[in-house]
Each structure stands twice: as C-alpha cells, then as structure tokens.
Computed example of a mutant assay.
Amino acid sequence: MFDAEMLDVPIIIFMSVVAPLWLILHYRSKKQVSQGLSEHEHRQLVELAHKAEKMAQRVETLEALLDQESPEWRRKV
C-alpha cells in the first residue's frame, strides 16, 4: 500500500533546498521592511511632496482667477 520510504526523498529535498531558501527570503524581506525607505525612495517621496505642494498652489491660483473672471463657476461644477 503506502511505503514510508517514498516520502524520504521529497522530505530530504524539501529540508535541504526549499526550507533554507524559504527562511532566507522570508527574513530578508522582514529586514527590508523594518529598515524603512531607502535613500532613493526617500528622495522620490520628498520630490513628490514638493510637486504636490506646487500643484496645490497652482490650483489655488486657478481658483482665484476663476473667482474673478466667472464668480458663478463653483455652482456649475
């Protein structure tokens, strides 16, 4: 019927190859998450924040111009 020796080879392969790789990759990803943003990612985030501030200023300017030119524009939207 069922031979216990049939499981020996897959278990040995799993324990010697798959399990160590699994553990290494798992703890490497945990380490990267705990370290936070890389310097490059931080720089990108700061750049995006700066662009968002400029965009907000432009929107405020456009709204002010629209308020002067067409005071009813807010009701149309």
Rank of each mutant, 00 (worst) to 15 (best):
K51M: 11
L21E: 11
I13P: 00
L66A: 14
S16C: 11
F2T: 12
E39W: 03
L37R: 12
W22P: 01
Q44E: 12
V59S: 07
G36P: 04
P20V: 08
L23C: 12
M55V: 00
E63V: 06
V18C: 10
H40A: 09
P10G: 02
E72F: 12
I11R: 00
W73A: 01
A52L: 10
H50Q: 14
W73G: 04
R74A: 03
M55W: 06
P71M: 11
H50M: 06
V18P: 02
Q32H: 01
E47G: 07
L65K: 08
P20K: 03
P20C: 12
L7E: 02
L48F: 02
W73Q: 05
Y27V: 14
R75G: 08
R43V: 04
L25V: 09
M55K: 09
E60L: 08
E60S: 13
F2H: 10
I24V: 15
H26L: 14
R74G: 05
A19N: 05
K51P: 00
D8R: 00
V17F: 11
L37G: 02
Y27H: 13
Q35N: 13
K76H: 02
A19C: 07
S34T: 07
S70V: 06
K51S: 12
D3Y: 02
K54N: 13
S29L: 13
S16K: 06
W22M: 14
H40D: 08
M55E: 10
W73P: 00
R75Q: 13
H42A: 15
F2N: 14
L62V: 03
P20Q: 08
K51F: 04
M55Q: 11
W22V: 05
K30D: 12
V77K: 14
E47A: 15
E60A: 14
V17N: 09
S70F: 04
Q44N: 14
E53V: 07
K54A: 10
Y27M: 12
M1N: 12
V77Y: 03
W73C: 01
E53Y: 02
A56P: 01
T61P: 00
I12Y: 01
L21R: 14
T61G: 09
A4W: 08
P20S: 13
L45S: 11
I12K: 12
S38R: 05
V17I: 13
Q35H: 04
H50W: 04
G36L: 08
Q32Y: 03
K31E: 10
L48V: 01
F2V: 15
L48K: 12
K54L: 15
H42C: 05
V18W: 03
F2R: 03
A19I: 11
Q57S: 13
A64H: 05
L66K: 08
L65F: 01
L65A: 10
E69A: 15
V9H: 06
Q44D: 09
D8W: 00
L7R: 01
L23K: 07
E41P: 01
L23W: 03
V46G: 01
K30E: 14
M55R: 13
D8Y: 02
A19L: 15
S29G: 02
D3A: 12
E60P: 00
P10E: 04
R74C: 07
P10V: 00
D67N: 11
S16P: 01
Q44T: 03
T61W: 07
V77S: 06
P71W: 02
P71S: 08
D8A: 01
L48W: 02
K54F: 02
Q44F: 03
K76E: 13
H26Q: 09
